[in-house]
Amino acid sequence: MKALVCVKRVIDYNVKPRVKSDGTGVDLANVKMSMNPFDEIAVEEAIRLKEKGVVTEIIALSVGPQKAQETLRTALAMGADRAILVQTDDEVEPLAVAKIVKGVAGEEAPGLIITGKQAIDDDSNQVGQMVAALMGRPQGTFANEVTVEGDSVVVKREVDGGLETVKLALPAIVTTDLRLNEPRYASLPNIMKAKSKPLATKAPGDYGVDTAPRLKTLKVSEPPVRSAGIKVPDVDALVAKLKEMGVA
């Protein structure tokens, strides 16, 4: 079966985002961009399933600007077989991304669609669940362990109280959590090889998807800053503070 893996180009997780002074958004000019960390985990999981002989072909999909090609090349260097860039310079909301994923899935008929649980820029946590709804297929969100058994997939999920296991009929959608795996680094030879792997470029219109935003961003502002605190010299001073606060 094929696996379709969604990868988003986002601000690198090590960069501290800065709000633009005009309040229109976050300054991304000259900022390091990388693959969304949860999507690296998604690519890795697909590769492991291919190594186990469960998955036969891995298709990486990104919706975004031309530069998102770099993100797709990273996925190819890790081990994806081919890539599709649905190119647009607009900011595409999760609902529209989900519709595009559905469109691609309609052509590719993957047995598994793997997305990250959350993009670390918009922090929406929506796309995977939306794809599942639009396709009328089951979802295994926040996956900690994924096991394909015949025509179903067993997903152990990270939930607020601990772990929960569900069994889903394939085709299914899985979204990754942090403990699912540790993504590999692409080796230099694989980075070279990735350059010649196929990367198709499409447009949202090819899938009949209107990317006009449903949410209007009126303003983006800095969060309230915490005022500077104090340092105490030793444990006794900390105990005194806790007593002052009525905690101890």
Binding site: I11, R18, I120, D121, V220, S221
Partner: peptide
Amino acid sequence: IYAGNAIA
């Protein structure tokens, strides 16, 4: 958004 580094 952005891990709470901005509020939209």
